[in-house]
């Protein structure tokens, strides 16, 4: 009984982390039609930058949460620069965008290796969340429960932003029909920068939040990127609900697959993607784009 409960909590925790990572990826793809292959790198950069601040690697130390916010803001600014000075030069050219974002991800990986070396960096659990919570007969790490709570809060905040503000309506209009959005006077290029920076910041935030359970190591980017792709393909690009449901689904499939069928873990993980692509290519909650 305990085994299943713990596996379930781990799945939801991992789903929550994936949501933080994939919601930005999905928004960027939905609005800008850019398959941003730097997303895994942004996650890893966030983890390295945040982790370094937490352990005082650069000569100054901050508490975990401030470090997480600072890492997210730094990477968001980097995302805005990538969008403005590189991707904006390649409008509508998806092959070039894929190649450029892939190239940046290689450069980021090399940069991280140069600055932080090849050894994994462990990030300590934030103060006060190192213990366990006893619920019913089961014991759960407090930090994992905190990640679930953070993912829910971010999901609600994103939902409020997208669904209850004029900026959110403008972003959704841009996802619906970018040309018409421009015709009604929406400066879609500005929205692109905002959304790209938001997505980058969220990915970095996910990176540092995930640090205490995943640790930070070279190759973390390439481990996370396919999972974000998986979430977006299953949930549907541009859909917040799709990202949420897709993340939780992938969280469950990943954890249960690893625990029950370890030799088939990747088969189990990517089979739903194959089925969705065959039966509902726009994803569970995505809109069909002709």
């Amino acid at each position: 009984m305990n085994f299943w409960l713990v596996l379930t909590v781990n799945s939801v925790t991992f789903g929550g982390l994936l949501f933080l990572l994939a919601s930005g990826f999905s928004l960027i793809f939905g609005l800008m039609r850019i398959p941003n292959l730097t997303h895994g790198s942004l996650f890893m950069l966030g983890a390295y930058i945040g982790g370094s601040i937490v352990i005082g690697l650069f000569g100054f130390k901050m508490n975990f949460w401030l470090a997480a916010v600072l890492a997210a803001l730094t990477v968001a600014a980097l995302g805005a620069l990538i969008e403005r000075f590189l991707l904006r030069q390649l409008p509508g050219d998806q092959l070039a965008q894929v190649l450029v974002t892939l190239g940046i991800s290689f450069m980021a990986a090399d940069f991280c290796l140069m600055v932080w070396g090849g050894d994994p960096m462990s990030v300590t659990t934030p103060e006060g969340l190192g213990g366990f919570a006893r619920i019913g007969g089961a014991v759960f790490p407090l930090y994992r429960l905190a990640i679930i709570a953070i993912a829910v809060v971010v999901a609600i905040a994103l939902w409020l932003l997208l669904d209850r503000t004029r900026l959110g309506a403008m972003i959704r209009a841009g996802v619906d029909d970018p040309d018409m959005a421009r015709v009604v006077g929406i400066r879609v290029s500005q929205l692109f920068t905002i959304v790209f920076a938001l997505g980058a910041g969220l990915a970095a935030f996910a990176g540092i939040i995930g640090g205490p359970i995943l640790s930070v190591y070279p190759g973390l980017d390439q481990d996370m990127l396919p999972l974000a792709l998986l979430v977006v393909i299953i949930g549907g690009a541009g859909s917040l609900l799709g990202s949420f449901v897709g993340s939780i689904l992938v969280g469950f499939i990943y954890n249960f697959g690893q625990a029950l069928l370890p030799e088939l873990a990747y088969f189990v993980l990517f089979l739903p993607m194959l089925l969705v692509l065959l039966l509902r290519p726009q994803g569970l909650f995505g809109r069909h784009v002709p």
Binding site: R166, A169, A173, D176, D177, M180, A181, G185, I186, R287
Partner: peptide, 24 residues
């Protein structure tokens, strides 16, 4: 301003949101 062929309203926005985003 353009009223385009085929209307091209923002389908996933409410009526009110369709109007709000175009406000100038």
């Amino acid at each position: 301003a353009l009223v385009p062929q085929g209307r091209r309203i923002f389908r996933s926005l409410t009526v009110r949101e369709n109007l709000i985003v175009a406000g100038r």
